[in-house]
Design a protein around this nucleic acid. Structure first.
Length: 399
DNA sequence: GTCAATTCACATGAAAGAGACCACGGTCTAGTG
DNA sequence: CTAGACCGTGGTCTCTTTCATGTGAATTGACGA
């Protein structure tokens, strides 16, 4: 028997998982623990829609992994089940963060039209036309009410401007037969502060905040899911507690906790361990963190990689803090050496700011008085990972 | 020593251009009856 | 005559450049004690 055969054969028999799907983040469980209050609240706000009445617009906040989307979708599913074929209302969900699908005004509308059964080109038409088309479709649809769930709406507004939301909420006055209810979901708690007053008052007629899960609640969730996902006896109480503790530290992110458990399971499985041990959680945590960072780095555009490499190299070679100017000159040299076009400092400045946003570096704006203002740049990732990252960059840039 | 003005080295904003992608409508071409 | 190929125009979108303005404190230099 070949080596590969052994590997393949052992998969089924020794698997620790009963159903790995359960731990996937897109899995939606039957019941959602510790969110009854919020779910009831959402349901009570949206309930009049069953009669075809326009309800208040709803705005939902909460950090990632606090069950926002899950809860809203749960209510939405129940609503659609309730009305079934009676064409009273229709619920559409749209994640505004999905690249290339819904991250601009045009694309969001186009996507909605597509979901409502219309047909528009992906590009090429004036945005105004799309609005008209959207209105037209709504007017012709049989449903009286459209509940529009816009997930990660903060991302969209950041890119597009709040004009879009204003238009959307104002659309109701142009519509005679169908009304729109907007349910916005945002990860950013300060989101509403940043948008226009007019939009704000119309959009957030009702607000619900999803608090982070605490460690005990996380444990509860993990316990429930792991019972279904793993074979009996694989996961011990200590492991669950540890997972929950990790995730609680990360602002109570349940998704993170579940990922942790899943990856720990995979690692344990690969080591042919019959149970998940505490140490597997630790390595899972490392692995998740590491994969995330390396993935970000690998998928950056070339110019970004050049800038990033400059930063890594500078930090490696000088123990002192480095600044925007240093990075830019180093970067220019690098471009010259590799015969590539170099970008302006203005652009590089933005790129550095983006790396800060991504959490690869810490860039703090400081003023050195007479010696000007600049960004002080530090690495935000562990040494081991940055070394690995450099290798990746060297390879992908042919240095 | 004190205090306001100056000055640096960028940060941050706004606008606009380049180039890729695409739809639409009109015109041309070749194949058909 | 007509279907399909082939433009030109006009639109979006992303990445960039260009031009302009902003900014916080070390430094400077005038001033007064």
């Amino acid at each position: 028997m070949s080596n590969l055969d052994k590997i393949f054969d052992s998969v089924g028999s020794r698997s620790l998982f009963k159903n790995k799907q359960i731990l996937q983040s897109n899995h939606s469980p039957e019941d959602i623990p510790h969110r009854n209050k919020q779910i009831d609240h959402i349901a009570s706000i949206l309930a009049p829609s069953l009669l075809g009445q326009k309800t208040s617009n709803l705005f939902i906040y909460g950090k990632t992994g606090t069950g926002k989307t899950l809860s809203v979708m749960h209510v939405a599913d129940q609503l659609t089940m309730r009305v079934k074929d009676s064409k009273v209302l229709r619920v559409e969900y749209l994640n505004c963060k999905l690249k290339k699908v819904a991250d601009t005004e045009y694309r969001i509308l186009a996507e909605l039209i597509k979901k409502l059964g219309g047909n528009v080109p992906e590009t090429g038409l004036p945005t105004g036309q799309i609005y008209l088309k959207f209105v037209e479709i709504l007017e012709n649809s049989e449903e009286k009410l459209l509940i529009l769930i816009l997930d990660e709406i903060d991302q969209a507004v950041k890119k597009i401007s709040d004009e879009f939301l204003y238009n959307l909420t104002r659309l109701n006055s142009e519509l005679s037969k169908t009304q729109i209810v907007v349910v916005g979901i945002s990860n950013d708690l300060r989101f509403l502060d940043e948008i226009d007053q007019r939009v704000r008052s119309s959009l957030s007629e009702e607000e619900i905040v999803f608090p982070p899960y605490n460690a005990l609640q996380l444990q509860d969730i993990l316990r429930k899911r792991s019972q279904e996902a793993f074979k009996p006896g694989v996961v011990s109480e200590g492991v669950i507690a540890k997972c929950a503790a990790f995730a609680a530290r990360e602002h109570g992110d349940a998704r993170r906790a579940l990922d942790l458990l899943r990856v720990a399971g995979e690692i344990a499985e690969r080591e042919s361990s019959p149970i998940i041990e505490i140490k597997h959680i630790d390595s899972a945590n490392d692995k998740i963190e590491r994969d995330k960072i390396l993935d970000i780095i690998e998928t950056q555009p070339k110019q970004f990689q050049l800038v990033l490499y400059s930063i890594f190299d500078l930090i490696e070679n000088s123990k002192e803090n480095i600044f925007t100017g240093d990075v830019y000159t180093y970067y220019q040299d690098l471009c010259k050496k590799t015969k590539q076009e170099d970008l302006t400092q203005r652009r590089v400045s933005d790129i550095i700011a983006e790396f800060d946003m991504l959490g690869l570096i810490n860039a703090r704006v400081i003023s050195n008085g007479r010696h000007g203002r600049t960004r002080e740049i530090k690495l935000a990732i562990p040494d081991t990972i940055s070394r690995k990252s450099r290798e990746i960059l060297i390879e992908s840039l042919n240095l």
